[in-house]
């Protein structure tokens, strides 16, 4: 019942006076069919980036699962704050969903997202869970994770990362703390590609990257993966041990998932969750996951995804503070 004024507002804004009349004539008991118009997916990534690609891969099979068209809105800028601000400016009626990454969560934690607060996010479904992998160049003297960790205890290693306060920066810092290493030197780059080149060229000692970012160099033997920060071994790297296996309880990954903002009706959240999961269980999305070295288990529903978001908020706050990024 409480959704009525909202529907009317949206409808009149679109100039659909006739639709409103029809709806009223249908009687107060009639539920509007959801979804009945295109759903907008807001991402902070530019067209062609990894996150944008994830959104578009999901969209291929989503129309069949949800019975609605999807469009992507790329709102770049402010490490996700532009996309959060845009989503907040739209009606909370389920027709605007966000594809978020840890970047959004970190932006929220730093209070840089305007009116949107960390508690406003409602997870729908997780899309990708791409583990971070510790890698060194082929010319590096360190052949195994143990070699590398042993040497790192006295020598501050140079790691390539994307931006300060980014997911991989937090992971580098967390890994160093948990393994008791000397404070690492962090060299920020614009993207994973630059980091790979500098690993091969010997300008960096190590980096935490996703498998896909260095796939061709790993296959060519130019980059050596040493350690996987995942709970279990990766299918694409069966030889590489996990951090847990060598006694360091560290799990880091690049995570992407869908979310809406608080205020979206509960029944619509359920429809979206079911539809998104169904779409992402489809062959096309699963093939996409496989080709980037991820497991099909990346796709999980609302409960597990929300728990992960909450967990990240609680650990991320401390991590940012320890890096001196937030007070």
């Amino acid at each position: 019942m409480s959704t009525y004024p909202k529907i009317m507002r949206t409808a009149s804004r679109l100039g659909l006076g006739a639709a409103v009349a029809l709806l009223l004539a249908g009687g107060a008991g009639a539920q509007e069919k959801f979804p009945s118009k295109p759903i907008e997916v807001v991402t902070h990534a530019g067209v062609g980036g990894g996150t944008d690609l994830t959104a578009r891969m999901m969209m291929v099979q989503a129309p069949a699962a949800l019975g609605a068209e999807f469009v992507v809105a790329n709102k770049t800028g402010g490490s996700g704050s532009a996309s959060l601000g845009y989503a907040n400016s739209r009606p909370k009626d389920g027709y605007t969903i966000m594809l978020i990454t840890q970047t959004h969560l970190l932006t929220l934690l730093q209070g840089k997202a305007g009116a949107v607060q960390p508690g406003d996010l409602i997870g729908l479904a997780r899309a990708t869970e791409d583990p971070q992998v510790l890698m060194v160049g082929a010319k590096s003297p360190y052949k195994t994770a143990q070699d590398f960790i042993e040497a790192s205890k006295t020598k501050p290693m140079k790691y390539g990362t994307t931006q300060l306060g980014s997911v991989d920066h937090l992971a580098v810092a967390g890994f160093a703390t948990k393994a008791g290493l000397a404070k690492p030197v962090v060299v920020p780059f614009r993207g994973g590609g630059d980091i790979v080149v500098n690993l091969v060229g010997g300008n960096l000692d190590a980096a935490l990257l996703n498998y896909a970012e260095a796939e061709s160099q790993i296959k060519a033997g130019e980059v050596r993966p040493l350690l996987v920060f995942a709970p279990t071994k990766m299918d694409s790297l069966p030889q590489t041990p996990t951090a847990t296996e060598i006694g360091i309880p560290a799990v880091y990954s690049t995570t992407r998932g869908f979310a809406v903002l608080k205020g979206t009706p509960e029944d619509r959240i359920k429809v979206l969750e079911d539809g998104l999961i169904k779409a992402m269980q489809g062959k096309l999305f699963q093939d996409y996951l496989k080709s980037s070295g991820q497991s099909g288990g990346s796709v999980v529903g609302r409960a597990a995804w929300q728990a992960q978001i909450d967990e990240f908020f609680s650990t991320g706050k401390e991590a940012l503070a320890s890096l001196g990024i937030t007070k």
Partner: peptide, 20 residues
């Protein structure tokens, strides 16, 4: 835009789109 090395925003005047 956002300074890559320090994470500080320069001359963006609070416009999120300019941070890149």
């Amino acid at each position: 835009g956002l300074d890559l090395m320090t994470g500080v925003e320069r001359f963006t005047f609070g416009v999120a789109e300019l941070s890149e």
